[in-house]
Design a binder for these strands. Structure first.
Lengths: 237, 237
DNA sequence: TGCACTCGAATCGTATGCAATCTTTTTTGA
DNA sequence: TCAAAAAAGATTGCATACGATTCGAGTGCA
């Protein structure tokens, strides 16, 4: 359990029903790539898997569809989203627009307690990076996304936090598809630098570092279309 | 029918099912204030009203809930959202962060055809402002929101467009609750100026004008808490 | 009169069933 | 042998049914 979760999960989990829990579960599975893009998620299958009726499974899939993590086709079913290069660009364009501003907002509101939380977060990231094995890799991916979410949480705007949740999740999908280095391309050292800027209340620098950071992540992608989308689709089943 | 709709509706309406249509209908009703904040939207009522089963009505309400236009309470029902002053501030903080960037993006991509569309949009706004009566007022509110959506559509980023759809809708709700001047506070002349900047390819100016524009809208609000949220709730039924 | 309690109406949460639609396989004819 | 048509199978879209929960009115008791 990480800090960012502790901040924004309560509002979510207290919130509603079983559908939410299933959504969270599937979301995590998609984000840390246990579910490959294109994987079919039939209502019945999800239902039996979580031991609920199709009604509830359907609601969970609908939520994921709103977040852009799942694409639904009428009378065909739901599939883990398979973002096109163009969508990938839009995800990162959105992050470039929003996250520097979030960094500034967070910088203006950050408390000593927040800094402690950030340090803990960085430690956790570092631990997973040091470890070996696919489980550690998955945790590392999640942790590096959680850094950005923690920043958004500190910024104190629930709406922007939700937008960031969506963008971070979709980024993970994009990196899974188009990342060059198999590992999470989210530089740990850059996160550390950003926290340093926050600690020094150098908001302008925090913002600039964030922008560069996003550029670096995107630069690690190979956004050329590969083999045409039709074939790509075909390969996924 | 306005231009912005023509741009982004197809993807929506082709998309799914009847639930989407009901969502659009309710959304419009909320946005142009035929449904007051706090109004109860029971699944059964919505279902009979649109002549569908509760299943479909429920799906529509779930969508609205994701967009923040409707608040649902477990085992109690759905209500038109009643944003607090704090939420209102967050809506506008988000817009201040995003829309100047959208203005720049739009400025860099705007075509002659887009300019024509903008002019048509401005004309429509002007027409509704000149007209009298509640219907014209509602159309005016919608049109002034559509200006911002058209700009986002021109910017060419589907993700940001969706974010803006949500923010514009919630803004309308906020203005309904906290607006000082009964009328839409979205200055028509400022829209005109922004289009002028776009036409002259003065991106920096377009961005600056947008920021001021948002500030002006927010400045027209009275965000003091009135009589406590509990009483406010009580007054709504 | 005031308070606690019980009962009932309304509404939601969830499961299930049937029809419609899409996909795949089989059959049929050239 | 191959292509086109037809049937079978799987999955979704939607409606309906039933249990669970909440809120409020009415009742009994102090």
């Amino acid at each position: 359990m990480n800090i960012a979760d502790q901040i924004y999960s309560p509002a979510d989990s207290v919130n509603q029903d079983r559908a939410q829990a299933i959504r969270d579960n599937l979301r995590d599975a998609i984000v840390d790539r246990r579910l490959a893009p294109g994987t079919k998620l039939s209502e019945g299958e999800v239902g039996t898997l979580f031991d609920v009726s199709r009604t509830v499974a359907r609601a969970a899939l609908q939520m994921l569809s709103f977040e852009g993590l799942v694409r639904t086709e009428r009378n065909r079913g739901a599939f883990v989203a398979n973002p096109s290069p163009e969508e990938a660009r839009q995800v990162f364009a959105s992050r470039r627009l929003i996250e520097p501003g979030i960094a500034i907002a967070a910088c203006g509101r950050v408390t000593a307690a927040d800094i402690v939380a950030f340090k803990a977060q960085l430690d956790e990231e570092g631990r997973f990076i040091a470890e070996r094995g696919p489980t550690a890799r998955r945790s590392e991916i999640k942790a590096s996304g959680d850094f950005h979410l923690l920043l958004a949480a500190v910024a104190g705007n629930a709406i922007l936090l939700r937008f960031m949740e969506e963008l971070v999740a979709r980024s993970s999908l994009v990196i899974a598809l188009y990342g060059r280095s198999g590992v999470s391309a989210c530089g740990h050292s850059e996160h550390t630098e950003i926290v340093g800027a926050l600690e020094g209340s150098d908001c302008e620098r925090a913002s600039r570092l964030m922008l560069h950071h996003i550029d670096h992540i995107e630069a690690d992608l190979d956004l050329r279309v590969r083999a045409g989308p039709a074939l790509k689709e075909a390969l996924n089943f």
